[in-house]
Design a protein around this nucleic acid. Structure first.
Lengths: 207, 207
DNA sequence: CAAATGAATGAATGATCATTCATTATGGAC
DNA sequence: GTCCATAATGAATGATCATTCATTCATTTG
């Protein structure tokens, strides 16, 4: 009685390595969102993926390595979309900033499942420096881009009164904090309120 | 060979319940900061407290209940200091806001150990709603007070242009995000930069 | 088609851990 | 001083879980 029978026994199939890895990573995200990082077992993950328990060993060697790849997946996915916006050359700087804010609260990238995974790993950062490392490089690059954007957008007067680097880190912190709000409050309205709050902060700097 | 002998065997002592509970909670905080929530075992905690493994059962019934009380401890501790500032009646509103910002980045309350615990629990919120509940009530009360403060401090012009509730939630999110920065970056300088960023946001609203 | 390859399985293993509870120690009460 | 209530101990228990690997199965190659 195979678990994944529908009516008739489904045949097991060999898939390309990359596809299996993605399948397992997606199952891991779902499980962490549902049960938390601490309570997620290998059996949970392989059940969710409708595969056998031994498969993780085959594709990731250990649970810890699967977790690391899962975090990397989410970090890369975010960074990729971010880079796309920045690389675009049919947008003015202000449009880019608007696009980033929209992106930061778009459901495909930022939803409660992914935020749950994100914050689950961040919560373990002090104990597992590897998690911090995975986030740090992207973060630095992102902050650098945002800083350049503010530099070109803000008036001389504003820049004389405020430190641009400080504005950048406040902006990043604001975004992180708003994400946390979304994770913590199940209402859908939070996402819109969060986007508005981010935009209010930015527009306050611009005029 | 008792673990906690120094030179001669130390006698075990019966302490008032409340003291033992605090001792265990403090040990739990240390362990979570050092090993992470997922990897912290009962043996870790009772070793740290230099007590026997059975003691948690005696004072908290289960590990889960000890964890819940630990989160509650940190939340209550923060709220208590916050209330003290707000209850003071020899401070103007602006002074109060300054005092809150100083408080939010004072090492006694906000340090990497306590932040590690804080975010470790937040990371599990989606899976364990009880953690969310413990934080939510305090958060609501705090936001309410901050909102009142902004209402009285901001000019009519600013209030006409911006929604005070949105400003409040941006302020809270900013603080949360800056705390996350402190947890993530081991440099001591981060704390001062964070305080400055928070203050810059507020002073930008005031003039 | 037969043989070879290697992807996938899942029962078995052994390690880790929370919890239990019979026993021991402690500090009042009298 | 001797009892007694109860705080504290820690070896033992049983449950959970990551990992292993001999076996099974699908696909490819010759």
């Amino acid at each position: 009685m195979p678990k994944h029978s529908q009516n008739t026994t489904r045949k097991r199939r060999a898939l390309p390595k990359a596809e299996r890895r993605n399948q397992l990573i997606k199952a891991t995200i779902k499980c962490i969102a549902k049960k938390g990082l601490a309570a997620t077992t290998m059996a949970d993950i392989t059940n969710e993926a409708e595969l056998s328990v031994g498969i993780v060993n085959l594709h990731f060697k250990t649970k810890e390595l699967l977790l690391i790849e899962t975090l990397r997946f989410i970090a890369d996915e975010y960074k990729e979309g971010f880079d796309q916006i920045f690389a675009s050359n049919n947008m003015q700087d202000l449009e880019k900033l608007k696009a980033i804010i929209d992106y930061d609260f778009s459901p495909r990238i930022i939803n409660r499942n992914k935020l749950a995974v994100w914050f689950a790993f961040l919560g373990e950062v002090k104990a597992r420096p590897i998690y911090q490392k995975i986030c740090a490089q992207h973060d630095d690059e992102i902050n650098h881009e945002i800083c350049k954007l503010f530099s070109s957008l803000l008036s001389e007067k504003t820049k004389r009164k405020n430190d641009v680097e400080l504005i950048t880190s406040a902006y990043s912190a604001l975004t992180d904090g708003l994400w946390l709000d979304i994770l913590l409050s199940p209402q859908r309205s939070t996402v819109n309120a969060a986007r508005n709050a981010a935009w209010q902060y930015v527009s306050g700097l611009l005029d």
